[in-house]
Design a protein around this nucleic acid. Sequence first.
DNA 1: CTGAAAGCGCTTACAG
DNA 2: CTGAAAGCGCTTACAG
Lengths: 342, 342
Amino acid sequence: MARRATAQDVADLAGVSRSSVSLVLNGRGAGNLSEAKQKAIRAAAEQLDYTPNAVALSLRSRRTRTLGVLTWPGACGLPQELLHRALIRAGEHHYLLLVVDTGGDAEVERRQLETLQDRQVDGFLVVAPAMTHYRPSEALTATPTVLLNCVDPDGAVSSVAPDEVQAGRRAAEVLLRHGHRRIGLLVGDPATLQTAQRVSGVRQAVAAAGEIPPELCLAGRDIDDGARAAGDLLRGPGRPTALVCTHERLAVGAALGAAELGLRVPDGLSLVSLEDGEQLTSKLTTVHRPDAAMAEQAVGLLVEQLAGGAPEVRQLLFGCPLQVRASVATPGQRPGDAADPR
Amino acid sequence: MARRATAQDVADLAGVSRSSVSLVLNGRGAGNLSEAKQKAIRAAAEQLDYTPNAVALSLRSRRTRTLGVLTWPGACGLPQELLHRALIRAGEHHYLLLVVDTGGDAEVERRQLETLQDRQVDGFLVVAPAMTHYRPSEALTATPTVLLNCVDPDGAVSSVAPDEVQAGRRAAEVLLRHGHRRIGLLVGDPATLQTAQRVSGVRQAVAAAGEIPPELCLAGRDIDDGARAAGDLLRGPGRPTALVCTHERLAVGAALGAAELGLRVPDGLSLVSLEDGEQLTSKLTTVHRPDAAMAEQAVGLLVEQLAGGAPEVRQLLFGCPLQVRASVATPGQRPGDAADPR
DNA sequence: CTGAAAGCGCTTACAG
DNA sequence: CTGAAAGCGCTTACAG
C-alpha cells in the first residue's frame, strides 16, 4: 500500500499549516480562513485522497468509535442474527465492532475484556446465545455496557432481552384457542433459563385454561432428537394432539417423526415452535424472537449512553409475536389460521 | 471508568523516566537498567495494573493487530462458522477482527473498505457465504489480503476455498458404490458457482460410471422446498432410489417428503447432502466442507504475510471429506456403511 | 486571519 | 547505566 496522505501532505500541497487543514476539513473554516485557502485545502485533500487516520484521531480524542462485543456459542453456535444486526446498526452510527468469543468461561472473558480495554473500546455489548442471567464483572460495569439477550439479575446494567415466559404462553394459547387439550412439550437443554421460562409460560397458559399442565419431554438439540421424542410421545398413552417445541429443530423433527407414523401436520398433529430464528421451514407456526429489533435497540441504548445521554439503567423486555403459518389446526381437522387478532 | 494508568504513572511511582518503563516492560531491561530499578518498575506496573494503551502503540508502530473482514450474507445469513473460527484463530495470533457486512454490493464495499483503511487494519479477509469468484478491487490488492471461501479468477490474491467439484463427485460416488443407478439431484440457488461446481461434480461421477447424468431439480432454500421437490421426483416416472442435495435443508426436506409418501430413509430412499454446516441431523451422510480448517488456514496465511513471510500468492483448495452416517443404503435394503475406505 | 505549540500515550535512537 | 528528545498523525487552544 502506498503511504497514505497525512494532514501534513495536504498542508504542504495547499501551502498552509497543518492546523488550517484540520480546521477546514472539520467544517470550522468559515470565519477562520480566507475563501481562497479553504478552497485550496479542499482541492489538495481531494487530490491526495486524504482521509484522517482514525488511530491518531482516537489517541487524541480518547474515543475509538469501537464497541467491544463479548459473546459465546450456544447449542447452535454464536447468536448470529443478533450479532449481524448489531453490526449493521453499529455501522449506521459509525461504530465498528470488535467481537470476541469468551467460550462462556469467566477466566477467558477476563482476558478478552482486558484486551478490549487495551484497545480503548468505547463501550461493551454482551450478546448471549440464549436468554440467561448474566452478572457483569466490575471491569464491565465501569464502562458503558448493554446486555443483549441476557439480563443482570442485580439490575446494575441495561439490558435488552426477550420475554420468554410470554413467548411460552403465546405458544400454548394458540393451541388452546384451536381446541387442543392434550398438549405435549418438547424441550432442548432444560438447564437454561431460556427453557425454564418458555416452559413456565406454556404451563401458565395451560393451567389458566383449567387443564393439567404438560410434563416436559426432554428431546435434545437436533432434528433426530425431535423426531425420536415426538415418536415416543405420539405412540404413548394419551397421545397429544399438539406439540409445543422450544426450538425450531425439534419442531421440524417432530414433523418428521409424525410423518413416519402416518400423521401429517397440521391435520394429524399441530405444532408450534419457539423458534431460534433459523427459519428452516416456512410452514411452521412460531413465536418469533425479534432479534433484529432487539439488537438495534441494544446498540441504540449503548450509543445513546456513549453520546452522554441518559445514564439510567434500563432493563427492556421485548414481546415475542405469534407468527401464524400453517402448522396449527383444530384437532382432527384441516389447517385454519386463527382469525383471533392477538 | 477510572483513568487507566499510563507509562508516565508507572515511571512516577517507580521514580524513573518513561523510557525506562518502556524498556523494562518490553524485556529490554537487562543490561540497560540496574536490577533494583527493574524491580521497582515491575512492582509499580503491577500495583497500578498497567497495560499499554494499544491505540498509542498502534500510532507509533503503524500496526494495529487488527484484521478487516469483508463479508456478506448468503441464503442462510452470514457464513457464521467461517467467521467464528477465523475470529478464534486470529485471537490466538493476538489479532482482533473488525467485521463489516458489504451486503454483496460493490459500492457499499468500497465505503466499508475505506472505513477499515482509515482504521489502519493490517490486512483483509474476504469471507464469502458460498463458494464464488471474487475480484478484489485495487484498494484490496494493495494490502495483504486473503480470500476465504472464494477465489480470485485472475489469481492476484491468495485464497482458501473448498473443492466443490470434488465434493459433488464424492456425494455421487458413495451412492454409486452402493449400487444406486437412478440418482436425483436437488439444488438450491442454481445461479451460484457453488451449485454449478457441485452439480458438475455429481454429473462427472455419474457419467464416469457409465450412467446418464441426472437432470437437476430446482428445489429452493428451505425444508419445505426440499420436501416438495423430493415429493415430485418420487411420485414421477423413473423414481430415483437416491437423492443428492446441494444443501442440508433440502436433504432434511427430502426425508420429510419421503416419509409423507411412506418411504423411510435409508431403506426406501438414500440421501447424501452437500451440507452447509448446520448439522441439523446426526443421521445424514454428507460431504463436509471443512470450515474450521479453512478459516484457520486463511488466517494463518494472512498472519504469515503480515509477519513479512512469503508474499507469493497461494490459491488453496481444500478437499471435502465424506462423512458417512446413516442415510445411505443399498437400494431396497437396510442401511450399510460403505466399508470402502476412500 | 494564520501558524507554532502542546499534547493524546507510546517506543526508540541518542546524548550524557 | 540513565534521561531528554523526537516522532507516529491528529486537533485545539493560544499567540501574533
